[in-house]
Structures are given as C-alpha cells and as structure tokens.
Computed example of a mutant assay.
Amino acid sequence: MTTETRTEILRYSAFTTDPAAGNPAGVVLDATAIDAERMLAIAAEVGYSETAFVTARDDRQRRFQVRYFSPLTEVPFCGHATVATAVALAERIGAGDLLFDTAAGEIRVATVIDAEGVAQAELTSVPTRSRPAGDEELDAALGALGWARADLDPALPPHVAFGGVEHLVLAAATRARLADLDYDFDGLAAVMRTHGWTTVQLLWRESADRYHARDPFPIGGVVEDPATGAAAAAFGGYLRAIGEVREPATIRVRQGEDMGRPSELTVTVDPADARVRVAGRAVPIAD
C-alpha cells in the first residue's frame, strides 16, 4: 500500500461553528512517514490556505510536532490550522492542554469541549513584537493594494507585527474602504516576498474591543484568508505596542464576512505579557 492511500486528510473549518463559514484547514494527524515534498503536494491538492501535518506525537505527554504548508510553500506557523488540529486531537484523545512544537517555537493550546460536543481551542502565541512600517514598505504595499495614505486610519499607524510570522498591519479609515478589496495579486505577492510578510492584515475599528479584518495571502497562492489566527496574535501585540491596550483586554475580530465565510476570533492581550492568546471553535467539514 502506498503512502498516498494511507494518508488520512481531515478537513475542519476554524473560528466558526458552521462548516460553510470560517477558515477551512487540512489536518493530517499522522505524517510521520511523509516528506516535505509530499506534504506540499497534499496541501496543494487540498487547496486550503494551509494544511497542518503532525510529524511526531506523544499522546501521553500531549506534545506534538506540527508543520504547516500552504498550496505553494511551507510556513512557520498558522493559527487557524493550529486551532483545527487542536480540536481534531481533542475530539480523539480528550480535551485538555496540548503543546505544539512548530518552526516558530512552542505553542501551547488549551482545548475544551462544550455540552453540545463542540470543541474550542485557545492558542498562546510566541512572544509578539511590532514596529512602525517604513515609508518604502508602506508605499509599495499601498500601491499593490490600490489604496492611498488618505484611506488609512490616522489613529492606528501602519506597523509590521509578529506573532509567529510577520504581517503588515494597515487600518482602514472606513468600513467601505475595507469592503472594497481589489488588489494586484502578483504585485502584492512580490512586495510581501521582499519584506518577508506572511499576510497583509487590513482592519477597520468598529469599537475599542471590536474589529473587522481581511487578510490577503497571495504568497500562499490564496487571494484572501477567511480567518487568520497568526495575524490575530500579531494584531494583539500591535495593540499592546502602540498603547491601545493598557490593561488586560479581550478583543473580538470579525473576519471573512466580505467573502461570505464569517469568522469570529477572540484575542486576549495582557500589557505585561508579550504573548497573546487567540481562541476559536472549529468543526469538521464533511467529505
């Protein structure tokens, strides 16, 4: 029997309780015999923004080595695929704390299953950081997006934020600007490759604890992510860095709405801790 026929690929939608919403992820819970080339091929076949592969596991210690692949490349960390993988594991080995060893570092994930049998996972990011975006970086990104500086919210400065991988964070001045996303796919991908960004996180602030987000992901071969846990972690660090969060706070991020795949991400930020917690539910997608 070949490796291809043995490989079980699970499909989950993260940051939602509706399989038709949220961000779908592939999950391979036994990838011990699969090499990187095959993982990339599987991710391309699945076609989701990321597929997670558990390449080593210790169920007794609840510790797992995880790699993440988009259809085009391996990425060091992916939040929604982490949530999907954690939920898949909780459904099979029971709820509780998990530890994922990733290329970005150790990621602790707490899982619970509610009375209705729906699982939730809350990941704790690696230490976050954030810095102002340079003029050259900003102008290149805005040019590819077809945005102007006047389209940005002056109260939320452009930054490059890190929560396992780097993201350019741009806050739109209006909800209408965020909704009107029609960008140069190849042009933005080139800018992102130059600067090492995994997504561009576009946001609009509805209130102090409620944001709307969109995340172009052209370097992964995907026009847009319906929910981006890694970017949400980076965003929490961004809010801490710019002084928008001065005491422990919970932020709700609504993403995917403009794609018809609404997602809800819960971001918990403590100004005294560089790590950010990101929580959401996940449900299986029927074959």
Rank of each mutant, 00 (worst) to 15 (best):
E224L: 05
R214F: 03
V87A: 01
L203G: 02
F77P: 03
T55G: 11
A119E: 09
G105I: 01
I113R: 07
T111N: 09
R149I: 03
A274C: 07
V160C: 14
Q120C: 12
D184L: 07
I219V: 15
A230M: 07
W147C: 02
P24C: 08
A172I: 02
T102Y: 08
E247D: 12
S70E: 12
G280M: 07
A25W: 07
P132W: 03
V112A: 13
R252G: 14
A227K: 00
P19A: 13
T2H: 14
L99C: 11
A213C: 11
A172V: 05
R108H: 12
G94L: 08
Q65W: 13
P218C: 06
H212A: 12
A25G: 05
A232C: 15
I113N: 04
F15M: 05
E45K: 12
R67Y: 08
R193V: 11
A33W: 06
R129P: 01
G163K: 00
F69P: 02
S49W: 09
R57Q: 13
T194W: 06
P216W: 07
Q61T: 02
R108M: 10
A86N: 09
L10V: 01
L152C: 09
D225M: 07
A279V: 02
P158W: 06
D135K: 10
Q201G: 14
A36K: 13
G280T: 07
A279R: 05
S130W: 00
G94H: 06
